[in-house]
Amino acid sequence: MKLPLSLAVLATPFALAACTPEAPPPPEPETVSVDPCGAARYSHLIGQTSPTISVPEGQMYRIAREDRPMTMEMIQDRLTFIVDSRGKLLSVSCS
């Protein structure tokens, strides 16, 4: 029994594909730290009015009022403390 020529032509790519080596697995994504600046250390101060905040030497930080303009560049290692007009700490985040 002879295979028709068209069937042999169509089967060739499948036969060759079975012989090719398996593609390498995709690289694993880099892990991103959820708290790169250590904002969680200050979460217990949220809700306090005029809390005493000690920031380690060399740590970038800023204190911003909620009703004032603030730059929006993202610096993951910088702590951002948001306070209201009375000095109550509203949030601490990395930005």
Rank of each mutant, 00 (worst) to 15 (best):
L5E: 13
L7G: 07
L7C: 04
A8H: 05
A8N: 05
V9A: 12
V9M: 11
T12A: 13
T12S: 04
F14T: 02
F14D: 02
A15M: 04
A15D: 01
L16I: 04
L16E: 03
A18W: 12
P21K: 13
E22M: 14
P24W: 04
P24H: 03
P26N: 08
P26K: 14
P26Q: 13
P26H: 09
P27M: 05
P27A: 06
E28F: 03
P29Y: 08
T31S: 04
D35L: 05
D35P: 06
P36L: 05
P36A: 06
P36Y: 07
C37R: 12
C37A: 15
G38A: 10
A40Y: 09
A40P: 10
A40C: 06
R41I: 09
Y42S: 10
Y42V: 03
L45W: 02
G47K: 01
Q48C: 01
Q48G: 01
Q48S: 06
Q48T: 07
S50R: 15
S50Q: 15
P51S: 14
P51E: 13
I53S: 06
S54T: 15
V55C: 09
V55G: 05
P56D: 06
E57A: 14
M60C: 10
M60T: 07
Y61E: 03
Y61N: 05
R62D: 04
I63M: 10
A64Q: 06
R65T: 03
R65Y: 08
R65E: 09
E66I: 07
R68F: 00
R68M: 02
P69W: 00
P69E: 00
P69K: 00
M70L: 09
M72K: 08
E73G: 06
M74N: 10
I75N: 09
R78Y: 09
R78S: 08
F81T: 11
F81N: 05
F81W: 08
F81R: 10
V83H: 06
V83W: 02
S85G: 03
R86S: 11
R86G: 03
K88I: 00
L89Y: 00
L89G: 00
L89A: 01
L89P: 00
L90A: 00
V92K: 02
V92F: 03
S93C: 08
S95V: 12
